[in-house]
Simulated scan of single mutants.
Amino acid sequence: MNRQMAGYIQDNFTEIISSWQELMKNEKNERSFQVMPTDLMNQTSKEFADLMVSNLLESHQAYENRLNDFAEKVVRLGWSMTFVTKAITHFSEVVFDGMERAGIINEKNFRAFSKEFTNWINPIRDSTIDTYSKTWERTVSLQKIALQELSASLIPVFDKVSVMPLVGTIDTERAKLIMENLLEGVVKHRAEVVLLDITGVPVVDTMVAHHIIQAADAVRLVGAKCMLVGIRPEIAQTIVTLGINLNEFTTTSTLQRGVEQALAWTNRKIVEVDEQ
C-alpha cells in the first residue's frame, strides 16, 4: 500500500499541493503562508510534499536527512510547531480524500488504508516534532551566543577612551562574559576610561546593578575609571526605588555626555572648528 499511496501522490502532485496550500492559508492565527512570497511558498510546499513521499519510499537515513534539512528551513521561516503538525495532518487528509474520490480507497479496503495512513502519519509527526524541537533549540542557542558576543565587546572610540554597549537582559552568564571582555579590552586598548552604556538594557534591577558594580570594581583594579551612561528616566526611578547605591559611579543620561566627561578626565575636549 505504501507504493500505491506514493504513486497516487506523484501522479497528482500539483493538485495535491494546491489543495493543501488552500487549507494552510485558511488556518486561523497562522500567517506563515499568507505573508510568504509565492515562489518561496511553492518551493517550500514542494519540499514538504517530497518529504512526505520520501517516508513511503526511501530508506530511514535518506528520510532523516531530508527531515533535518526541512526542519532547519521552516525554523528560519518562522513556522510554529503547531503550523508544522497541521501541515502534516492536512496533507494526509488531502491524499486520503483524493484516493477515496478516485476509487482507490473503497468500502472493502477502507479499514486497511486507514490503518496504513495512521502508520504513515504518526511516525512522521513524532519525528518531525522531535527534529523541529532540536533544530529550534540549537538555533536559539546559537543566536543567544551571537547576541552575547556582539553585545559585550569593548569598542575604542578615542585614544584611552572605550565604550561597552550592553544590549538585552543581563543574567549571571552574560555578566561573566561582560566581565571577561571588559577586562581583556581595557588591557588590550590601554583604556583609561570605560563607558558602560546601558541604553539597550530594558530592566535594571538589583541583580543587574550588582553585576554592573562588580564590573566597575574590576575595571578600577586594572587602573581605569568606569562611567555608567544611558540612564533613562524610568531606569533612574527604578534604581532610586530599589535603593541601589551607585554613589561611586559617575553617571550620565546619554553617551554623548559621557564621552565629553571621559575626554575631560583625559585632559581633552571636543571643540568646533570654523570652516574657512
Rank of each mutant, 00 (worst) to 15 (best):
R3N: 14
Y8W: 13
I9C: 09
Q10F: 10
Q10E: 12
Q10C: 14
D11N: 15
T14F: 12
E15L: 15
I16G: 10
L23W: 09
M24G: 06
N29P: 00
S32C: 10
P37V: 10
P37G: 03
T44L: 15
E47V: 10
A49T: 15
H60P: 00
E64P: 00
N65D: 11
R66G: 12
A71R: 05
A71N: 03
E72G: 09
G78C: 11
G78H: 11
W79T: 06
S80L: 11
S80G: 15
T85W: 05
I88R: 02
I88K: 05
H90C: 08
S92I: 09
E93Y: 12
F96K: 13
D97G: 03
E107C: 08
K108C: 06
F113D: 01
F113Y: 15
S114I: 00
S114W: 05
S114R: 08
K115D: 02
T118N: 08
I121T: 15
N122V: 13
D126Y: 14
S127C: 05
E137Q: 15
V140F: 13
Q143N: 15
Q143K: 14
I145F: 09
L147V: 11
S153L: 12
S153Q: 12
V157F: 08
F158P: 00
V161L: 14
S162E: 03
D171N: 15
R174S: 06
R174G: 09
L182I: 12
G185N: 04
G185T: 08
V187P: 00
H189N: 12
A191Y: 04
E192V: 07
L195A: 05
L195M: 07
I198P: 02
G200K: 09
P202N: 04
V208K: 01
V208A: 01
A209W: 01
A209L: 02
A209R: 02
H211L: 05
I212M: 03
A215N: 06
A215K: 07
D217S: 14
D217F: 13
R220N: 11
G223H: 07
A224P: 02
A224V: 10
C226H: 05
V229H: 06
G230H: 03
I231M: 02
P233L: 06
E234A: 11
A236E: 01
T238I: 01
T238K: 01
E248V: 11
F249S: 03
T252F: 14
T254C: 12
L255Q: 05
L255M: 14
Q256P: 00
G258Q: 06
A262R: 04
L263P: 03
A264Y: 12
T266Q: 14
T266M: 11
N267W: 07
R268A: 13
I270M: 11
